[in-house]
C-alpha cells in the first residue's frame, strides 16, 4: 500500500538539518500503524512526506501503486485528494464554514454534484456522531466535535489511507479516548490504512504496529 525506498528529508538553512535519514518502509493495506518518538525525531516529517504535503530530498515514495516523485504539484494534490485523508492536531477547519460545509469542501473541490455532496456529507457527519451539529461554525463546537468534523472531512471520499498527526494532542483524555475509538472503529469498518503520529502510548497501543523514530531514523518497528 505504502512503500518508501531510501527516502530522506533535509532542511536547508544556515546549516543543513537532516530530519529524516534514508529510510525504507513498507505498510500493507488495512494496517493501523502508530509512529512514536521524541520531539524532533522526524515523525511528522515522515507523515508529511507520505501524505505528499512535502517532497523528499531523496528516495521514492509509492502510494497505492502511484509513485509521487514523478508527479507535478497538482498531480500530488490529486493523489492526496483521492487516496488520503488528513487529521491534524489543531483540526485545521475553515472558521468561516459550517461543520457541514467543512466536510463538503473536499467534495466540492472534486467537482461532485450538489445532491451527491449533500448526501455524502450528511452520511459522514452521522457516522462521526455530529448529525445534529451540521450548521454550527467551528468556533461554536467543542474540541472533540471539531476533531470529529475533521475526521468526517478526512473520510469524505472514503480514502484508502488515513493520516493523523497527533489527533488527540489537543484534547482532554476522555475526548481523546473517544476520538481514538472512532478512528479504530472506522479502520475496522472501512479497512482503511491508518498512520497515527502520537506521543501518547495509549494511542500507540491501539495500533497493530508501532514505529519508533529517533534522530531521523526508524529505531524500532514492532508489531503488536
Amino acid at each position: 500500500m505504502i512503500r518508501l525506498s531510501q527516502v530522506s528529508k533535509c532542511f536547508d538553512g544556515k546549516r543543513t538539518v537532516t530530519a529524516l535519514h534514508p529510510t525504507d518502509l513498507h505498510i500493507d493495506k488495512g494496517e493501523m500503524v502508530a509512529i512514536i518518538g521524541p520531539s524532533g525525531s522526524g515523525k511528522s516529517t515522515l507523515l508529511n512526506l507520505i501524505g505528499g504535503l512535502d517532497r523528499p530530498t531523496s528516495g521514492e515514495i509509492e502510494l497505492d501503486g502511484e509513485r509521487l516523485g514523478g508527479l507535478s504539484g497538482d498531480g500530488v494534490t490529486r493523489v492526496r485528494r483521492d487516496k488520503i485523508g488528513f487529521i491534524f492536531q489543531f483540526f485545521n477547519l475553515l472558521p468561516s464554514l459550517s461543520c457541514f460545509d467543512n466536510v463538503a469542501l473536499p467534495l466540492h473541490l472534486r467537482g461532485w454534484p450538489r445532491a451527491k455532496i449533500q448526501q455524502r456529507s450528511q452520511e459522514l457527519l452521522e457516522l462521526v456522531g455530529l448529525g445534529a451539529r451540521m450548521e454550527h461554525l467551528p468556533d461554536e463546537m467543542s474540541g472533540g466535535e471539531r476533531q470529529r468534523t475533521a475526521i468526517a472531512r478526512a473520510l469524505s471520499v472514503y480514502p484508502p489511507v488515513l493520516l493523523a498527526d497527533e489527533p488527540t494532542g489537543n484534547l482532554d483524555s476522555a475526548t481523546g479516548a473517544d476520538i481514538l475509538r472512532l478512528i479504530s472503529d472506522l479502520h475496522q469498518r472501512l479497512n482503511t490504512t491508518v498512520l497515527i503520529v502520537t506521543h501518547d502510548m495509549q494511542v500507540a497501543h491501539a495500533a497493530q504496529r508501532i514505529l519508533t523514530l529517533r534522530d531521523g531514523r526508524i529505531a524500532d518497528d514492532r508489531r503488536l
Partner: peptide
C-alpha cells in the same frame, strides 16, 4: 495562509 494550506491539503488544485 493556514486556510489556503488546508484547502490544498484536502485536495484544492493550484487553479482552485
Amino acid at each position: 495562509r493556514r486556510e489556503l494550506g488546508v484547502l490544498q491539503a484536502v485536495g484544492g488544485l493550484r487553479n482552485q
